[in-house]
Design a binder for these strands. Sequence first.
DNA 1: AGGCTATCTGAATGAGCGTTCAGTCCGGGC
DNA 2: GCCCGGACTGAACGCTCATTCAGATAGCCT
Lengths: 208, 208
Amino acid sequence: MAKGTLPSSGSLSAKAPEERRERILRATVDVVRTRGFAGARVSDIAEAAGTSQGLVLYHFHSLAGALNAALTLLEDEFYDDLARDLQEQVGPVERLRHMADLGAGLGPAVGDWRLWLELWVRALHDPDARETRESLDRRWRAALREVIAEGVAAGEFAPSDADAAAIRLASLMDGLAIQLALEDPDMTPERLADLWWDAAVLELRMPR
Amino acid sequence: MAKGTLPSSGSLSAKAPEERRERILRATVDVVRTRGFAGARVSDIAEAAGTSQGLVLYHFHSLAGALNAALTLLEDEFYDDLARDLQEQVGPVERLRHMADLGAGLGPAVGDWRLWLELWVRALHDPDARETRESLDRRWRAALREVIAEGVAAGEFAPSDADAAAIRLASLMDGLAIQLALEDPDMTPERLADLWWDAAVLELRMPR
DNA sequence: AGGCTATCTGAATGAGCGTTCAGTCCGGGC
DNA sequence: GCCCGGACTGAACGCTCATTCAGATAGCCT
């Protein structure tokens, strides 16, 4: 009956399994980043995490389970990072500017666009990934819409159609990022940030 | 009697193998469209083409060979279709408008955006696909740049930076198309065409 | 006609890989 | 001390799937 005290006891020993689990998740993300979803093997994950294959399947029910768990971890971290990063900026213009840098992978790298590409394609065939992707996109677009609304309220932006501008700017970021992820010879992080920023100036009719 | 009944002779029988090969290529494209590159099996292709697995491997050296052959077929057709479609339009404004419809999958469908997504991800890991994808993108962007240049020469467009405008409009199309391909609830072909067209009006400073 | 070659097939082969499992290790409650 | 159950491992197991192969079929050349 005294079972209620489960997490306590030897703090280190009790936490070890959880840390191990986390290590496996990180390893999973790494493997997907380099090999892609299609190329990710249980053995790759186990090796990258420094554990046995058995343990990967012990913590997550299957390979797909590990992949999906990694996905949701990624989503949560993405949003937390984004929210924290934007919080640090002071006004709408600075926030928007910061979003350009984030997308370009300049500032504190929020994520890797290669992973996003992989996610998109997986979303074509896997309902779980579709969910994650939609949620991610919604959050990112909501953040952008919010910054724009803030700028409009402050009289800094004057878009003719704020919603359309938000969708277009979000989509433009995706499109530019594809070239970055694919290492297109004529796309660099700086160029991406510039191109996007100029589009924002145009769309939002920013003075200056 | 004369073998005339079924296979007949002469030119038709000599062309038969070539037609068979073509059928397999079409089937390969179909399979990739529905199952994706990662999910494409030799047996799927054979079944879709109505042949044996052996024949697929006989004509192309391997599964990868068939996939890559299908890729280059796709690339050629894409470009031919695009060039022919644009040829039919009369002026830069009409051509640009037509490009919006093409991207939206309205007019005569040039291709399927799902396939493009698949291609992008495959390009992350396969050099052959990377080549194809770069070539495709180059051609598409060149066509766009050309239409813009034509419009500038005709005094219909007045972009502040024509090259940047072309890259942005091409990238915006990609980004919007992702949502279409993923069947994002708030994206439709019509909406895509509208959003893109409005952006073009803005970028190119078109008079009403 | 008789062989030669290209085309095509269905079964066999074998490698790769996810998943299962029998068992080890160890901390903590009795 | 003894046992229990969670954490963990390494070795199978079995299935899927690309590739190989031994032939069958039919046109083509001499």
